[in-house]
């Protein structure tokens, strides 16, 4: 009988699910409590760390990644990696938008030859 179907699949013991559930509840309360205190610049990283732990619990236990084959893991990790690339390269732009290479600004004295057609009131008023 087990030959024909999914009988052979590993059935996760209830205690895993129950403990995960309790841990998630606890972490939710924890993150709310932490948010009441001010850690300055660390606020966001701490909140994200807790969220990350919660997410990994859901991913590993509830979604069963822990018992999954390797490729699923590679797939998921790589998607997070691409998300990382996305955010990192965009910040490479946003974070350095105002900086110009000092060489460009000073010795050559480069000034754009382009001038707005109507200097003065035109540019700011219509949009």
């Amino acid at each position: 009988m087990s030959q024909q179907g999914q009988h052979s699949h590993f059935i996760v013991p209830v205690k895993y699910y129950l403990r995960t559930f309790i841990a998630l509840l606890f972490l939710t309360v924890l993150t709310v409590v932490i948010a009441q205190f001010n850690f300055g610049a660390l606020n966001l990283p701490i909140a994200m760390l807790v969220a990350l732990v919660k997410a990994s619990l859901v991913l590993m236990i509830f979604m069963g990644m822990r018992w999954e084959k390797g490729f699923t893991f590679v797939l998921f990790i790589s998607s997070i990696l691409f998300f990382g690339i996305f955010i990192a390269l965009i910040f490479a732009d946003i974070d350095t938008r105002k900086q110009t290479d000092p060489l460009e600004a000073k010795p050559f004295g480069l000034v754009s030859p382009v001038r707005p057609i109507s200097s003065g009131n035109g540019a700011s008023e219509h949009h």
Partner: peptide
């Protein structure tokens, strides 16, 4: 799980 701290819990 991520939306909650990002919108509701900005310290």
């Amino acid at each position: 799980i991520f939306l909650f701290p990002l919108f509701y819990l900005i310290g």
